[in-house]
């Protein structure tokens, strides 16, 4: 069946649909409540390094979408089991961190080379405090290891602050890009690539960068980066966006 064969809607049904409009709108206070809750949620997500956010970042939007946290956990025994494991492992790691002899380690925190863009909206996330140096003058003493499963010291697994910092960089880039300032978007994207070449948000960074490059007319760079992207993330959810950007090259 095609569009050419599509019959007209029966007149009585069409009239019914016309008469039924408009559908009841949202109560004013519901809009305000969702607005406030969303604002907090976005800020919280940034503050905790988007752990919850990234938990479903890889899920296609056509997969069963998460509902409220309690609903989704209760309805998915595997998730509940995994959550139990994570909580237990976190508690163990935390206990280990408390009981083991103190060990100070000097680390050097890179100063941000540019100040973050001012918040463009009430939804703009605030850079998490953990992503910023406590004192620009003195080297920082490493904080206690995060309450995560052990082996985070040796592995390349990013910490919450890494994730938060990654998100801040991408947010700055995204805001600049969305406002038509593609050149300004490249800076934070490049910094992200230098600091977190294999970061949790590397896939999103690359997809955004390809779109930026196309809009800036840097087609060869965009094509090369796109080829790498498709090799590295063949099943990416962002593939359509990347391919659309490349197809848009005149």
């Amino acid at each position: 069946m095609s569009g050419r064969q599509l019959e007209r809607l029966d007149s009585d049904i069409a009239a019914l649909l016309r008469n039924a409009e408009p559908y009841p709108d949202a109560p004013v206070d519901a809009r305000a409540r969702v607005h406030d809750a969303l604002k907090l949620r976005i800020a919280d997500a940034a503050a905790v390094g988007l752990q919850n956010v990234e938990g479903d970042a890889g899920a296609p939007i056509d997969s069963p979408a998460p509902t409220s946290g309690i609903f989704s956990l209760a309805s998915r025994p595997i998730l509940a089991l995994a959550a139990t494991f994570v909580v237990g492992a976190s508690a163990g790691a935390g206990l280990h961190a408390v009981l083991r002899p103190p060990r100070d380690r000097i680390i050097y925190i890179e100063r941000p080379s540019v100040s973050p863009a001012p918040p463009a909206s009430v939804f703009d996330v605030v850079a998490p405090a953990s992503a910023l140096p406590a004192s620009p003058e003195a080297p920082a003493i490493e904080a206690p290891p995060p309450a995560r499963p052990a082996a985070t010291e040796k592995s390349a697994a990013p910490s919450s602050s890494d994730l938060g910092a990654e998100q801040v960089l991408l947010d700055v880039a995204r805001t600049a890009f969305a406002q038509g300032r593609g050149e300004e978007a490249l800076g934070p994207l490049d910094r992200h690539a230098q600091r977190y070449p294999k970061g949790i948000l590397a896939e999103e960074r690359e997809a955004l960068a390809i779109n930026v490059l196309v809009t800036l007319g840097r087609y060869d760079d965009a094509r090369a980066r796109s080829a790498r992207f498709l090799r590295r993330y063949p099943g990416s959810l962002l593939r359509a966006s990347v391919e659309a950007a490349i197809e848009a090259i005149p």
Partner: peptide, 30 residues
């Protein structure tokens, strides 16, 4: 309205609208 037309009860619509816009926020760059 769309959530309502998809059969979501009003008490649940706030949570789901929140989820919709949160996903939109995350996907907007793409």
């Amino acid at each position: 309205r769309t959530l309502g037309r998809l059969g979501i009860r009003e008490p649940d619509r706030e949570d789901l609208a929140n989820e919709v816009f949160f996903q939109v926020y995350r996907r907007l760059p793409t």
